[in-house]
Measured scan of single mutants.
Amino acid sequence: LVRYRTISKIPQITLNFVDLKGDPFLASPTSDREIIAPKIKERTHNVTEKVTQVLSLGADVLPEYKLQAPRIHRWTILHYSPFKAVWDWLILLLVIYTAVFTPYSAAFLLKETEEGPPATECGYACQPLAVVDLIVDIMFIVDILINFRTTYVNANEEVVSHPGRIAVHYFKGWFLIDMVAAIPFDLLIFGSGSEELIGLLKTARLLRLVRVARKLDRYSEYGAAVLFLLMCTFALIAHWLACIWYAIGNMEQPHMDSRIGWLHNLGDQIGKPYNSSGLGGPSIKDKYVTALYFTFSSLTSVGFGNVSPNTNSEKIFSICVMLIGSLMYASIFGNVSAIIQRLYSGTARYHTQMLRVREFIRFHQIPNPLRQRLEEYFQHAWSYTNGIDMNAVLKGFPECLQADICLHLNRSLLQHCKPFRGATKGCLRALAMKFKTTHAPPGDTLVHAGDLLTALYFISRGSIEILRGDVVVAILGKNDIFGEPLNLYARPGKSNGDVRALTYCDLHKIHR
C-alpha cells in the first residue's frame, strides 16, 4: 500500500512540481520508500527539464536528425535550378540546329562534286560548318556529364541527390541515346576521305529529338503553341524528305545512260545542264529549293507536275512521300480545326451564355430598361472574369491554397485601402477568403433606401454616388468604403439613402 501511494504521487509531482519531503505519510521509514524516492526525484528532475525545454521552444527539443539540413553532394545540380533551365534551352537550340543542318550536310555532301578544292585539302579548321559541328559534339558530351550530376524525382516524389543513384537512373534511361548522339564521328573518321560515311553517321544526332519531343509535351495545353509546333514538325519532315529526294537524284545521276532524272530535267529547265562528264548542272541553292518544293507539294497532295519522278527509285520514294503525307494530314492537320476551336472556345461560351440571357429575357418578357441593365451587367461581368467562376475553380483546392490565391487576387485593395494598413498577414488572409466580388454598370442602383444592410462594401474600381431623395450626399471612388460596420450592432440596419454607380464599378463586399 505504501508503495502504491508513493507511485500514485508521481503525476502530481510531474505537473505541480511538489516535493515529496513535505508529505508526512511518505516520510515513514520503510525500505521500499527509501529505494523508490531517489528514482522519483530523478524522474521528476528529468520531466521538469523536458517541460522547461518545451515551454522555452528551444531548438534542442527536436531530434538531432530533424535539425540537420538535407545534404547535397558537391557538384550536384538541382533539376529545378536556373542554371539547369538555361542549359536545357541551350541544348534545345543545338538539337534544332542539328535537326536542320545534319540531314542537309549528309545529303548535299554525298558524292558532291561542286567546283573547288576537296575538304581534305583545305583542312578541318577552315570549314565553318565542321567547326560548328565540333562545338555541338562537345556541348552534347558536356550535357552527358551534367546529367550524371543532376537530381531527379523518383516514384515516391522524392528528390534524389545521391550521385550513385543518379548515375544508375541515367544509365537506365537516356544515357545510350545521348551517348550515340554525342559521338564525334568527324574526329574519329577525319582524314579518311569518307565524307559520305561521316554525313550518314552524323544523322545519329537526330535521336535527341525524342527527348525534345517529350520536353515539349508540357506545352500541349496551349493551343497556339501546339499549332506552332505542328507546323514546325511538318516543315521539318518536309526538309528531311527534300534532303533524301536530292540524295536519290544525286546518286543516280552519274550512272544513268539517259538523262531522265529530276536533276537533269531541272538543269535543262533553268539552262544549267550537266555536261557529258557529269559536272556542271544547277547550283546547290536551286537543287535544295526545288527538292523542298517537290516534297511540300507531295505532302499537301497538290502535285503540280513541273517536278516529277521519272526513275524507279524516284517513283518509289514519291509513293512513300504520299503515304507520309496522308498520315500527316490525319495526325496534324486533322487537329488544326480542334485547336482553332479551342482557341476561340471563350468567344463561343460568351455567345452561348448571351443567347441564354436573351432567351430568358424573351421568355419572361423583361421590360426594355431592365433588359438593357441585365445585358450590360452580363457584358461587364464577362469582360472582368472571362466567364470563369472563381468560386467553382477554387473549390477543388485546399483552404490554405485558397487563402493564398484570394490574398493575391485582392492584393491591390488590401495594400491601398486604409482600414487594412497594419493588419497582420493572417488577418488579411482571413479577410480575403470572405470577400465576394460584384460588378455594376453605370446607372445601376446597388442599394435602395430602406434596404437591409448586411454587408460592408469596398470599391475596387469606378465611382458611385450616394443620394437622399434627389440630393447627392457624397461621391465615392476607388478604395472608399460604404455599408454597415460589421458586428457593431446586434441587428442589421437599414439604408438611409440610395447608392448608384456612376461608372463601371468593381466592388468587394463582406457579409455579416
Rank of each mutant, 00 (worst) to 15 (best):
E64R: 09
E64A: 07
E64T: 04
K66P: 04
A69L: 05
I72L: 08
H73Q: 09
R74Y: 05
R74Q: 09
S81R: 10
D88N: 01
D88T: 01
L90Q: 01
L93W: 01
V95Y: 01
F101W: 15
P103Y: 01
L110W: 15
K111G: 14
E112N: 04
T113H: 11
E115S: 14
G123E: 01
Q127N: 06
Q127M: 12
V136N: 15
V136A: 12
D137I: 01
D143W: 01
D143Y: 01
L145K: 01
I146Y: 01
T150G: 01
N154K: 08
N156D: 09
S161V: 11
H169L: 01
G173N: 09
D178S: 01
P184C: 01
P184R: 05
D186M: 11
L187K: 15
L188C: 10
I189F: 14
I189W: 13
F190P: 14
S192M: 08
S194I: 10
E196L: 10
L197I: 11
K202W: 01
A204S: 05
R205P: 03
L209I: 05
V212M: 06
D217L: 09
R218Q: 09
G223D: 14
A224W: 12
L227M: 13
F228H: 01
L229T: 05
C232A: 11
F234I: 01
A238G: 03
A238L: 01
W240P: 01
C243V: 01
Y246N: 01
G249K: 01
E252K: 03
Q253F: 15
G261Y: 01
H264W: 04
H264Q: 03
H264V: 04
N265V: 15
D268R: 12
D268S: 04
I270V: 03
G271D: 01
P273V: 01
G280A: 03
G280L: 01
K285P: 01
V289N: 01
Y293I: 01
F294H: 01
G303L: 01
F304C: 10
G305M: 01
P309N: 01
P309W: 01
T311F: 01
N312H: 01
M322T: 07
S331R: 03
I332K: 03
G334T: 03
N335D: 03
S337G: 14
A338V: 14
I340H: 01
L343N: 04
Y344K: 03
S345R: 06
S345T: 15
G346S: 10
T347G: 10
H351I: 03
Q353D: 15
L355V: 10
L355Y: 06
V357P: 02
V357Y: 04
F360H: 01
Q365I: 01
I366L: 05
P369Y: 01
L370Y: 01
R371W: 01
Q372E: 13
R373W: 01
R373K: 13
L374S: 03
F378T: 13
T385E: 12
M390S: 05
A392Y: 07
L394G: 01
L394R: 02
L394Y: 05
K395S: 12
I405Q: 01
C406T: 04
L409N: 09
F420D: 03
F420C: 01
G422Q: 13
T424N: 14
G426I: 01
C427R: 01
A430L: 12
T438W: 07
H439F: 12
A440F: 10
P441A: 12
P442T: 03
P442W: 01
G443C: 01
T445E: 07
L446V: 08
